[in-house]
Write a protein that binds this DNA or RNA. Structure first.
Lengths: 158, 158
DNA sequence: ATCATACAGTTTATATGTAAACTATCTCCG
DNA sequence: CGGAGATAGTTTACATATAAACTGTATGAT
């Protein structure tokens, strides 16, 4: 649906730029809510799943909380609570760094590895269902445009 | 930048669908953070600005908290705090509905109208700067794809 | 050697967001 | 009329997110 209708605005949107940005943000919000609802079946949140996914890619070495924060682009203060809850649920462990006592190494437990393997599969099926309405070329153009935009925003230090 | 590098993943992403979704969400998050940082200059948040924008489109009649929730796709329980803070800042007022005592009508104060007019102009300039790297046809394709995706997700009741 | 500086993690205060249970009010139907 | 159900807003409990101030640890330069 057109954004002007969705927002029930009396006046048309200001510019293509604003319309593109709002469409982007609004669609992303929708996808995030649907993902979160999907993960709630498994007692997980979107953020928690993403952390488990990244850890499963690194496995035995683990990552520090700071490194996890960098991957997910969240503050390290936010990561404290995220890891707390995952640890409480038994999915990850804080292991002491062998030489540097400032660090933890966050690693998946066996339980955590099981959960992420189970959820990963059905989440990707859900993603396929959600995104199936876009053509291959629409998806490719979208990826190119998003990469270009992020590249630009980073380079210009917005 | 490619997502696989950004996420420092050892393994490539699962599918075009997942790559498209992650690009979308990640770029949106970035734009939201930049917008929020922009609004913080004026002591506002992104959500607060959006509410003021919608109210300025409706003006004297105002909207109920439920209607505002519907516009912004947030729960009515969330709207309570948002309106509380805007009221405390003196930007909006809760006016009693003339006939139905369950409702408020949320209206802009003079101060609220001033703020939104001032911020709106420079925000749209900021949006133009942020989005300027995309070509007109990229923006148009993006808008079309996002509308199509939202339409589909709504129709399929995901 | 020690002292300044940098770095990892935590805490606190604040904002946004959800779901579920609650209160107050309204409306409609028998 | 009067009660059942719908509706608007609130509260509570929780998760996520930031910024800023803090603690503890490591490192490097003088």
């Amino acid at each position: 649906m057109k954004l002007q209708q969705e927002l029930k605005l009396k006046q048309p949107l200001m510019s293509d730029n604003h319309e593109a940005l709002l469409n982007l943000v609004r669609t992303s919000t929708m996808l995030l809510k649907l993902s979160d609802r999907f993960f709630s079946q498994f007692g997980l949140t979107d953020s928690q799943f993403n952390i488990l996914m990244i850890l499963s890619d690194y496995d035995s070495d683990g990552l520090s909380q700071q490194e996890l924060s960098d991957h997910l682009i969240v503050t390290k203060s936010n990561m404290v609570g995220l890891v707390d809850r995952l640890e409480k649920a038994g999915y990850v462990k804080r292991k002491a760094h062998p030489t540097d006592r400032r660090f933890y190494r966050i690693v998946l437990t066996a339980k955590g590895r099981d959960v992420v393997e189970k959820v990963k599969k059905s989440y990707f099926e859900e993603v396929d269902r959600m995104m199936s309405v876009l053509s291959d070329s629409q998806k490719k153009s979208l990826i190119v445009a998003m990469e270009r935009l992020r590249q630009y925003l980073q380079a210009r230090q917005f």
